[in-house]
Write a protein that binds this DNA or RNA. Structure first.
Lengths: 237, 237
DNA sequence: TTGAAAGTTGAACCGACTTTCAAGTTATCT
DNA sequence: AGATAACTTGAAAGTCGGTTCAACTTTCAA
């Protein structure tokens, strides 16, 4: 149900800190945690953290950040109120951890759908189709990331800028392969991103009964627009 | 500064009611107010209402709905706390009134930029350019409508569905005029809408120093993508 | 077995913010 | 001018939910 079903939630604890959008490349040895006083040491602790994470993803997805309450999250997780603060510094910190985790999951799901043998156009189509499927299955993610605009603006912006850069790279690669126009850049990348997000909103999140079409069909339709444009052409096909 | 500078804010009072998304066509004679007990009767009252509206637009734009407080709004407007409730039933009601007003302003600004002599493609370009200019001038609007997803979901959805319908109509008209492909529909309309919103986010709301380009240049660049697509063509232009 | 560390509990604290209201002021109409 | 309606005021009521903490239980290593 929640985030951590397939893609092993990587959220570890809650490093309280806010504004940390300065993209510093501090990968280091792989475990550069700021404050691990909140990281569980035992198996029991890890299970509890997981329960809290799952419960809060659902809770935030259903109610939004402000309507969601810590007590409701702990109730849902089946633990006492105070337990929450064993693992998170605050409600905000939890939300931030969640946003970053989900942001990564979104990117991962797109990347997983892409393989190098595909043509540049096929890659765009596969990325959209994957995104649509992902959004259908994890509607909470959509809402939580959207709400980050207000709760954690830095992450929100980082999320879209990162994806924008990825798409820019794909367009460049397509140009180098001779498939795409070679004057494509950031503007076109953001346009593609906007298409994907809004198609996702309409056909994954708000899908109504009439939208019987599978993700693949819609992705194909969008792909045609992307490749041919919307202007009528006279020539044979 | 605020909403009501040029386009005469039409918000009248606050009809408290929540969930009213049933799209009933109750236009009637043009003034079907539910509760005008809050409508100002005197000039002084109208001025105070206006001050509150302007102050709240700025306040919500800067802080977002939850961080904004009624007392801060009244302070900004230069009136006493209690005065707020002479004109609005609640903080929520004010927000809803604002969202609907702004949603209308967004649509109006696009419509104003369009004239019937334009070609279908020119219309799309003009609509985007107008939207970009509008967004640059009224950044609060962007944020307030975004936050409606959480504070007033029905209006949020109505906003995008209405715009989606408008764009669909434009695409149809372009097809009938023989300029656009005639298999364009809702999917393409939402794609266009997504493009516009995200280009606006990037180049109007988040515009950085390097983005010296005017709204028109970016709109032109997007327009080219819309008309030609992103695939490289071999023929002479 | 035993003691220290890790984890759990929920009542109570606390600050913040929306909303109410009764008393006062200003505008309007005759 | 007098009377009524419209409007303003700000203190205080009322609510709500995040966070703390000291007592208690479980786990684990020696």
């Amino acid at each position: 149900m929640a985030i951590s079903d397939d893609s092993e939630t990587k959220v570890e604890g809650a490093q309280a800190q806010g504004a940390d959008a300065g993209g510093s490349a501090d990968a280091g040895p792989g475990f550069a945690r700021t404050d691990d006083s909140k990281t569980p040491r035992t198996e029991r602790g890890r299970r509890t953290l997981r329960k809290l994470l799952d419960a809060s993803a659902t809770e935030f997805g259903e109610k939004g950040f402000h309507e969601a309450s810590v007590s409701s999250i702990t109730r849902r997780a089946g633990v006492a109120l105070g337990t929450f603060y064993t693992y998170f510094d605050s409600k905000d910190a939890l939300f931030r951890a969640l946003v970053q985790d989900m942001s990564e999951n979104v990117r991962t799901s797109a990347r997983a759908a892409i393989s190098q043998e595909m043509s540049a156009l096929e890659i765009e189509q596969a990325a959209l189709a994957a995104f649509l499927s992902f959004a259908r299955e994890h509607k909470e993610v959509y809402r939580i990331i959207d709400e980050a605009e207000f709760v954690d603006p830095a992450s929100y912006r980082a999320h879209y800028e990162t994806i924008g850069e990825r798409i820019t790279q794909r367009l460049r690669a397509g140009a180098e392969a001779g498939e795409f126009r070679d004057d494509l850049g950031e503007v076109e990348a953001w346009a593609v991103m906007g298409i994907n997000v809004f198609i996702g909103l309409r056909y994954a999140i708000w899908a109504d009964g009439n939208d019987t079409g599978a993700s693949d069909d819609i992705a194909a339709q969008v792909n045609r627009m992307l490749s041919e444009g919307i202007v009528k052409r006279s020539g044979p096909d």
